[in-house]
């Protein structure tokens, strides 16, 4: 077992973890933060994307033990986040989800696009979204939702 100290959604936590426990399993099984979803568990589908030290990363291909000292933000921590609020509204308005399984990861990536690439056009949005798989929507609604938030924030 490995001792770690990690900040999750603003709360500093000390825990003992088995080295092979992924960050995603630690968040879901130990911390009961089940908003983080697991799809492929090898870094392809993007469902498990969370913020690690302020940037989106895959929680399925990082071990909790190697995130010692990091600051993690999961989807549960974005209730009062302005950008995420806009994205939630836009995903609803534009049918950006159906079953919702990919949505936590989609929102994490969408927030990264909106904050990092304010001038992104549709082509760039689609390129940046290529690491998040959705099997329901066909992506049109998701792309339109992100476009709407980018346009709104430009004023």
């Amino acid at each position: 077992m490995t001792q770690i100290t990690i900040t999750i959604n603003g709360e500093r936590i000390s825990a003992e973890v088995e080295p092979r426990t992924s960050l995603a399993d630690f968040l879901r099984d130990d911390q009961r933060l089940t908003g983080t979803h697991l799809g492929c568990e090898h870094g392809v589908c993007g469902a498990c994307t969370v913020m690690v030290d302020g940037v989106p990363q895959r929680s399925c291909i990082a071990f909790a033990a190697t995130c010692d000292g990091s600051e993690i933000r999961t989807i549960e921590d974005f209730d009062d986040d302005d950008v995420m609020g806009d994205l939630r509204d836009a995903f609803t308005a534009h049918h950006g989800l159906q079953c919702g399984y990919c949505t936590p990861g989609m929102l994490a990536t969408a927030r990264d696009i909106v904050t990092r690439l304010p001038d992104a056009d549709e082509k760039r949005i689609r390129l940046e979204l290529s690491g998040n798989l959705c099997r329901c929507t066909g992506y049109v609604g998701i792309v339109n939702a992100i476009k709407a938030v980018l346009a709104k924030r430009k004023g």
């Binding site: 993007g46 940037v55 989106p56 990363q57």
Partner: peptide, 9 residues
């Protein structure tokens, strides 16, 4: 390279 979430780590 891969995706932004992978490039970040």
């Amino acid at each position: 390279i891969a995706y932004r979430a992978v490039r970040n780590r």
